[in-house]
């Protein structure tokens, strides 16, 4: 299983950029919420491929479940 990590960059002006690494799906948003609570106010958010990968996996699993239920 991939390690779940956060990379936090604090610029010389105090602005913070947080990247979640190895955290798939909506769980990464929990970390985003946590860091926002600790630091201040979220100004932007970008969801990258890993987030959508997890969503796609969950969606595919749900489709299989529905198909099996219909049989």
């Amino acid at each position: 299983m991939a390690r779940e990590e956060l990379e936090i960059e604090i610029s010389p002006t105090g602005k913070v950029t947080v990247r979640t690494i190895g955290i798939k799906g909506p769980k990464c948003l929990d970390y985003a919420e946590l860091l926002t609570q600790i630091i201040g106010r979220e100004v932007s958010r970008e969801l990258t491929t890993e987030y959508y990968e997890a969503h796609a996996e969950a969606h595919a699993a749900r489709k299989i479940e529905v198909k099996q239920a219909r049989k």
Partner: peptide, 11 residues
């Protein structure tokens, strides 16, 4: 990587 957020600090 799964998300990138930018936060402005409140002191």
């Amino acid at each position: 990587m799964s998300s990138v957020i930018v936060i402005t600090p409140l002191i």
